[in-house]
Design a protein around this nucleic acid. Structure first.
Lengths: 106, 106
DNA sequence: TTTCTATTTCTATATTTCCGGAAATACCGT
DNA sequence: ACGGTATTTCCGGAAATATAGAAATAGAAA
């Protein structure tokens, strides 16, 4: 991941509403969550939610799959892992920033 | 760290210029880098750099210490570690997002 | 105090973001 | 095709951000 992509992804997560959305999607697990259910959880206008979701989709942090009439959103773990990897490698002094008790990738 | 603080810090890093600044400061190590030397490295107007630095200082990612007439900037590893910790704990599914080969805190 | 350098604040402008109502579109069941 | 639900696009206003020149401030040194 290059610096500009990393910055774009950090910017996408750097809004409380969007960070909340992403966090909810992570907790929703592999089956994801429809836009409608998401909206019910966070109580913002549908159009606003759509805008935020688009921001997350554009940078690859969220993917959407259509299931009939509903769009299901999923957190993209690969992108998040790469983003965290970038930050650790490029923006940390040797070991000084490693999160404590970090689970290893199996 | 709560969600709003995390979002504010991600937003601060979510700008290519600021991410570059932070990256340079990390690489500068413990002795840090003066605003002047920083400016020489990235070639933007002094006032613009000052604004970006302020954004990073406000959220705690950068600290400044005065050494005579020059202000020396330091990356704050503690805040970065906490931020990465937040992301791993709150925004990752168990293990799915752990960066590969992450160094442990001694 | 005067002067020099370093950095910030002031001021201004252009651009972008955030928000949500209204309208449009997409898809499904009948 | 029609009706209903889900979601997005369009639009615009308010607020925030990015950028930088000019002026102001802080500190050191003479």
């Amino acid at each position: 991941m290059n610096l500009d992509d990393a910055a774009a992804r950090l910017e996408a997560l750097g809004n409380p509403t969007r960070l909340r959305i992403y966090r909810i999607l992570v907790r929703a697990g592999a089956e994801g969550l429809s836009v409608g259910r998401l909206q019910a959880k966070i109580d913002i206008a549908a159009s606003t939610l759509s805008h935020h979701l688009k921001s997350l989709v554009v940078v690859g942090l969220v993917t959407q799959t259509r299931g009939g009439t509903t769009l299901v959103c999923h957190a993209n773990y690969d992108i998040m892992r790469d983003l965290l990897g970038y930050m650790v490698e490029e923006c940390c002094a040797e070991g000084s920033c490693a999160p404590i008790e970090l689970p290893k990738v199996a």
